[in-house]
Amino acid sequence: MIKHKDHFHGSDLEAIERVYGIKKEDITSFSANVNPLGVSYQLRECLASHIDAITTYPDREYTSLRNCIATYAHTDASNIIVGNGSTELISLMIQIKSPKKALIIGPTYSEYEREVSLGGGSSFYFALQEEDDFKLNIELLCSKLTSDIDLLIICNPNNPTSGSIHRKDMRKILDHCKRNDIFVMVDETYIEFAPDMEQISSVPLTNDYNNIIILRGISKFFAAPGLRLGYAICGNTDLIKEINNKKNPWTINSLAAIAGEIMFNDIEYINSTKQLINTERKRIYTYLDGVSNIKYYPSTANFILCKTLDDTVTSNDLFEAAIRNGLMIRDCSTFPFLDDHYIRFCFMSPEKNDELLAVIKEVCNR
């Protein structure tokens, strides 16, 4: 039996295998938030034919890749920085900005606080409120963004709440931060899953503001975390130059760079993913509406946050019931501001979603 203090990340399948005696190949991870379609259709067909690329160094400037990303993200190639996953770029950005005091909108991804701490800074949280369905109160946030804050960190759409901030509201935040000399880092890891991506993405704001950087990657939407390809979008040319000067050369291998170009051009895969996630999101809403003792929060990413309303049913109870059926969800009790009644799961295939929903219904209705 797993101890309550043990929690698993979506990539911890080896640990699950050891604790539960379930082969990792038999586990469906609803915790990793990775596209259930797997890697790009075109990538499967084409990447092997480019194997000879590893016999030479990549282009130091990654010109072709950056041009491809710029087209995909609707920005200029000069605004693009590429890195070894978005994690490298988060680290570099925080190292360069070296904030003494960062404000993080939470609950959210723990890596932000870790990187600020490694740089000698302190992190403070602006807590999203459950009674507001974890929707951001812009006015209240701005009241906390005083001149002693160096850096504001936003995950949009947010993990684990799956809520998002529309661009018109992000503009208000940036205006306020500009007046107080606060830089804003926006993590858009899950932006492509959002049904109204065009209204949420902050990329167009990089043309008007020099106090924002946007981070993205291919781990989740393109189901390729092992390739370690991330990119940033920023209109601040001085910051881009500083990041590029500090960044190690060739942090992206030749095959990952080629893979990126293939994936960003796979329109069929991109559209199929969006259609699947949007359809399953609506269907899961409808199903959960019929389940007693559980509440879900509006989702704009490819995952959903839920809360058990029965005090006798905990997040660990749901985790246990799911994993015994080879289904791994996220017990969210380790996130700031969430207790042992919150779970998160991503949208997989309709068949697998049905399996998980049946387990949730059984536990919550008992």
Rank of each mutant, 00 (worst) to 15 (best):
I200Q: 00
A48I: 14
N253Q: 08
T146D: 10
A127V: 12
P195G: 06
L136Q: 02
T300M: 12
P157N: 04
N236F: 10
T308M: 09
L92R: 03
A15E: 14
Y209N: 00
R114A: 10
K178N: 14
I294V: 15
P160N: 05
N180T: 03
N211Y: 03
E17N: 06
T55R: 15
F345N: 05
A259T: 05
L318S: 03
F193H: 03
G226A: 11
S201L: 07
H4W: 02
P160T: 08
T108V: 07
H74Q: 14
F30L: 10
S201A: 11
N236D: 11
S123K: 04
D238G: 11
S162L: 09
F335H: 11
E130N: 10
E130R: 05
K5D: 15
F134Q: 01
N210I: 10
H74C: 15
I94P: 06
G38L: 09
S117E: 15
M263E: 08
R324S: 15
F30R: 04
D311G: 14
P160G: 01
I69V: 13
S40T: 06
A358T: 13
N156V: 01
H7Q: 12
I360P: 00
K172I: 06
H341K: 11
T279R: 07
A73I: 05
L239N: 01
N210Q: 14
L338S: 07
R60L: 13
L205F: 02
P36R: 03
R344G: 14
I22L: 06
K97S: 04
I252G: 02
R216D: 00
I165T: 03
E88M: 07
P336N: 13
L255W: 11
D148L: 06
N207V: 12
P36L: 06
D354P: 05
G260L: 11
K172D: 04
E25H: 06
I360G: 02
T251C: 14
K241E: 03
